[in-house]
Design a protein around this nucleic acid. Structure first.
Length: 571
RNA sequence: GCCUGUGUAGCUCAGUUGGUAAGAGCGUUUCCUUGGUAAGGAAAAGGUCCUGAGUUCAAUUCUCAGCACAGGCUCCA
């Protein structure tokens, strides 16, 4: 607990508005303005460590009495003041302690004891006397004997309290990504961080391959990748407007210096700052700044859903800074990228345009123009799309890419959003042809959407049989008997030499081929090669291709050539 | 966050109307076996029956609270 004791000529305060949820309503008396003269005003912050309320109240009362005695104050005003500490106790605890303290002090001989209401924004005014003892700050701690015992961590007990997450599979389809992910050992969840996937070695291969593909494509299309801080001062989010509208969904972090930081829930504010870091010309536009930084959003617990809705994720994000007359061409450019990407995966999807909502910011004319342009683009594109009138973000219209999961539920994957607002809030500008300063428009766009969700949907659509370039293990070699192990090792070596990036492994266990095939099939390995006496003798490979029980026989060189082609061309 | 369900071994699950009931298969380790494309045989190890409180002589089992997962709402600046 921290206190600041002020000996005042007077203190006047009046509650205005609730600052916290779940705070009881004030009585008529409490609602009124309070004016106390010749008092000791005690500003109080109750902190996390103040667990033993009786003892801490006892200490507080002792201190107040002592200070009041020194300055000859007969009136006491307890004033909850959160700003003395960055490590505040829960409101419940604070209320409890304040009430007890008021009660205790009333038992003493003070003529007046008042307490300002807790959990309200208050206006207040006071005049401090200015003598040497009129301002005293103190930290009040309870020196408890049993404290060391209390703080001793029983790791083993804690391990029982948080464990690996148990999945309730009763309502899931067989091709649910959570089941496939477990079978293929791609990712897991743990109670240590609900809604935040642990990417296991095999899953991270898929993740990184997707990003690699994305990078290759976007580098050629004039995108420039950046990386920016994951934790930012709250001021950044006050500028962007997230603090006001989105704070409840953010993870907040505090530091000792009383500085509040937010863990970033989206990349745009940082991208704005990068744009702003140099003077920009119309010749720089479109300026496409991409990134895949990790984002954290405190999604409601009931909405979490495997990889499809998580609290920690990465997007294949980009912020494209353009001039107003580039909207149409930039959207075309992005829709083309969508085609390229989704064609590769052969997944069904549709577009959904969200137009100007009832509540919107900015110029109606600009909105209408943008809405119309986007409608035209979609109409002329001949792509499957729906229009959701009034469903745009309040800062601009958006085009979403929609896909279905194994239970037929629709999910937003990629999204292309126009933003007229943030460039203004960040006072972005570029110089146009005539030397005039203009504000750019920003297109926020993701193609995969979140990598997490995309992998989830991809697993469900493919039943885990990922295209070979994405498969965590692309080839597995099985030995028929122990006699064939040496030859099998040679095969692996040769394939590895011919295709250096090949992900190949072996199963030389002493068990039947059937059992080994079964395990390899559960892992959805595209190519399963069995090496037996026959193959050794004939110098061939017996290949089980993508779950097909009809075994193909081929020469090593032929196989490696076509495999190499399949992988590098991402077929 | 709300409503409804679920939580037993690394995985999939059985079971106890409160008491010699901590069980199976898979997986793991060891041994036997040397096999032709989704499970060859045997033995062993592996448990805080999600966590905490309560009721009881006795709780994995009943009650309450919490946590997590699932479905549905809501939300998705």
């Amino acid at each position: 607990m921290k206190i600041l004791a002020l000996h005042v000529d007077y203190i006047r305060f009046k509650p205005l508005k609730k600052a916290l949820k779940n705070i009881p309503e004030l009585s008529e008396k409490e609602k009124k303005e309070m004016h106390v003269k010749e008092a000791l005003a005690v500003l109080i912050s109750i902190e996390k460590g103040d667990t033993d309320s009786d003892k801490i109240v006892q200490e507080l009362v002792k201190n107040v009495k002592e200070i009041a005695g020194k300055v000859n104050a007969e009136k006491i005003v307890l004033y909850p003041y959160a700003h003395l500490s960055s490590n505040l106790a829960s409101p419940e605890k604070a209320t409890e302690i304040l009430e007890k303290a008021e009660k205790e002090l009333k038992k003493s001989k003070f003529s007046v004891v008042e307490k300002a209401p807790f959990g309200y924004y208050k206006e207040f005014e006071l005049k401090v006397k200015g003598h040497p003892l009129s301002e005293l700050s103190r930290e009040i701690k309870v020196e408890s004997v049993g404290k060391e015992v209390e703080e001793k961590v029983d790791a083993s007990k804690l391990l029982n309290e948080i464990s690996k997450t148990k999945l309730d599979t009763s309502k899931l389809k067989e091709n649910d990504h959570r089941i496939i992910g477990q079978q293929m050992k791609l990712f897991m969840f743990h109670e240590s961080s609900p809604g935040m996937p642990y990417w296991l070695p095999k899953g991270l291969i898929v993740y990184n391959e997707l990003i690699k593909f994305w990078r290759e494509k976007h580098e050629k299309l004039g995108y420039q990748e950046i990386m920016s801080p994951l934790v930012n001062k709250k001021q950044l989010y006050q500028i962007s407007g997230h603090w006001e509208h989105y704070k409840e969904n953010m993870f907040i972090s505090e530091t000792e210096e009383n500085e509040i930081y937010g863990v970033k829930p989206m990349n745009c504010p940082n991208a704005m700052l990068v744009f702003k870091s140099e003077s920009r010309s119309y010749k720089d536009l479109p300026l496409r700044l991409s990134d895949t930084d990790r984002l954290h959003r405190f999604e409601l617990s009931g909405t979490l859903n495997g990889l499809l809705r998580v609290r920690s994720f990465q997007q294949d994000d980009s912020h494209n800074f353009i001039s107003e007359d580039m909207i149409k061409s930039e959207y075309r450019h992005i829709l083309e990228i969508c085609d390229t990407f989704y064609k590769i995966f052969g997944m069904e999807y549709s577009f959904r345009l969200g137009t100007r909502p009832k509540k919107f910011l900015g110029d109606k004319k600009v909105w209408d123009k943008a809405d119309k342009e986007l409608k035209d683009i979609l109409k002329n594109s001949g792509r499957k799309h729906t229009i959701a009138e009034g469903d745009g973000a309040f800062y601009g219209p958006k085009v979403d890419i929609i896909m279905k999961d194994s239970q037929g539920r629709e999910w937003q994957m990629g999204t292309i959003q126009l933003d007229f607002q943030q460039p203004e809030r960040f006072e972005l500008e570029y110089t146009d042809k005539n030397g005039k300063k203009k504000t750019p428009v920003v297109v926020h766009r993701v193609i995969y959407g979140s990598l997490e969700r995309f992998i989830g949907i991809l697993l469900e659509h493919t039943n885990g049989r990922l295209p070979t370039w994405l498969a965590p293990i692309q080839v597995r070699v099985l030995s028929f008997t122990d006699r064939n192990v040496e030859h099998a090792k040679q095969i692996i070596k040769k394939l590895g030499e011919q295709i250096p990036e090949l992900r190949i492994d072996a199963d030389f266990r002493n068990t039947t081929v059937q059992a080994k095939v079964k395990d390899a099939e559960i892992m959805r390995i595209p190519y399963i090669i069995t090496i037996g006496d026959k193959e050794e003798k004939e110098k061939t490979l017996a290949i089980r291709v993508k779950g097909n029980s009809k075994i193909q026989t081929s020469k090593l060189n032929d196989f490696s050539e076509s495999l190499k082609k399949e992988i590098t061309e991402r077929k």
